[in-house]
């Protein structure tokens, strides 16, 4: 019993000692559109980033894109790829290689003037990619 109390205290102490420095941040929003890149499970995605408040396009950022499957946490982890900035302001391009068809959470990590992560839920299928509205009865085929 005492061991456990000690452990809990130790955990709490460890956590409490963790550095904290709060400061306000610009939030980003993203519009993601993907099309099949020809190869199976390869997709070309265009990401349009904007300031969530003002709607102003966000350019000049380092953008990397990864993905995982919410239905299998931690199991499928797509290597993060750097996105290339396009001529259009706030637009970035990236090619994703996924492991299987289905619903993916695409993480867009921003670095530079803005540090943020935007998550887009997309359903990747053979022919097309659509936004996900998670259906409650997904198991009931």
């Amino acid at each position: 019993m005492r061991t456990i109390v000690c452990t809990l205290v130790a955990i709490a102490a460890l956590l409490a000692g963790y550095p904290q420095a709060a400061h306000g941040q610009v939030r980003a929003k993203a519009a993601v559109t993907c099309v099949s890149a020809g190869q199976v499970l390869e997709y070309d995605c265009t990401i349009k980033l904007a300031n969530a408040r003002s709607g102003e396009p966000l350019s000049g950022l380092t953008v990397s894109v990864g993905a995982d499957m919410p239905s299998m946490p931690g199991m499928h982890n797509v290597r993060r790829v750097k996105a290339t900035e396009q001529a259009e302001k706030g637009a970035y391009h990236v090619r994703l290689e996924l492991e299987m068809h289905g619903d993916w959470a695409v993480h867009i990590d921003l670095r530079g003037a803005v540090r943020d992560r935007v998550v887009a839920m997309l359903r990747f299928e053979e022919a097309e990619v659509t936004d996900v509205k998670p259906s409650p009865s997904r198991r009931g085929h």
């Binding site: 904290q20 400061h23 540090r115 943020d116 992560r117």
Partner: peptide
């Protein structure tokens, strides 16, 4: 969505 603690605290 938007559990932004790590971004707000620059972790």
């Amino acid at each position: 969505r938007n559990i932004r603690y790590v971004f707000d605290h620059n972790i």
